[in-house]
Amino acid sequence: MNGTAAIAINNLGVYYRTVEALHNISLEVLPGKVTGVFGPNGAGKSTLVKAMLGLIPVRVGTVLYDGQPLQNCLEKVAYVPQRSQIDWTYPVTVWDVVMMGRVRKTGWFRRFSTVSHRQGMEALAKVQMEAYKNRPIGQLSGGQQQRVFLARSLAQEADIFFFDEPFVGVDQKTENIIFNIFHELADLGKIILVINHDLGESITNFDELILLNKELVAVGDRKEVLQEENLYRAYGSKVTFFSEMSSHLAA
């Protein structure tokens, strides 16, 4: 298992035309932890992930994984985009989507191997979607669709997982399945970076937090990051968040 290296971001800056989207971001994303990226709308959460992967141009700074530019190790990366990026009326079945996770490993001009088929089936079983294998993705609920994309990333056997807002429009069952898998992956020493915006109870599922608002507000252990002054700096005055303190008192 070579999934023990961290991702090191150094002095990252991103511009959209002339507008500065991210300024001077430096942080580490650690393996073996479930890391959440939080911040208000327009804070640059998606931009950060896209810039890390080289999906959008980076003005300054470096993103290194195991001492190499992350962009040179993309085959180790599984990325699940936001729901809104996907055309859910596209004529594909659940199985077609899961097997997309095997495209890069399979290589050009080749058919999927039996190993790939087995990986696909195992991934589907993990998210409890085997029964839906031959369904068109458009016929599934939002939570089921999200689980299919999670299965695609599992089938990829990646070391680094990026999820952009995976909990938007999903049911409680799906949320539990997804968090369980995140923790399993973390225990295997993988890097898991999850963009989220919900500061409610589910935040306790994250080990580390990155708090963003165009620049880095705070990064580190969840409890250290979730300080009132950090949240104030990220979100401005009005913010209510799930307080572990009060839940302990209630319990």
């Binding site: 896209k50 992967l53 999906l55 993309l74 085959e75 990366v77 599984a78 990325y79 699940v80 985009p81 990026q85 996907i86 055309d87 596209y90 594909v92 077609d96 989507v97 097997m99 997309m100 495209v103 890069r104 399979t106 050009w108 001009f109 999927f112 695609r152 990829q156 990026f162």
Partner: peptide, 22 residues
């Protein structure tokens, strides 16, 4: 025929395809 699986991935999910380095 030769590029079917890559083109399927690319036309379905451009960002996802780009993110795995296609």
């Amino acid at each position: 025929v030769l590029l079917y699986k890559e083109l399927l991935f690319y036309t379905f999910d451009k960002l996802g395809a780009q993110a795995v380095g296609l």
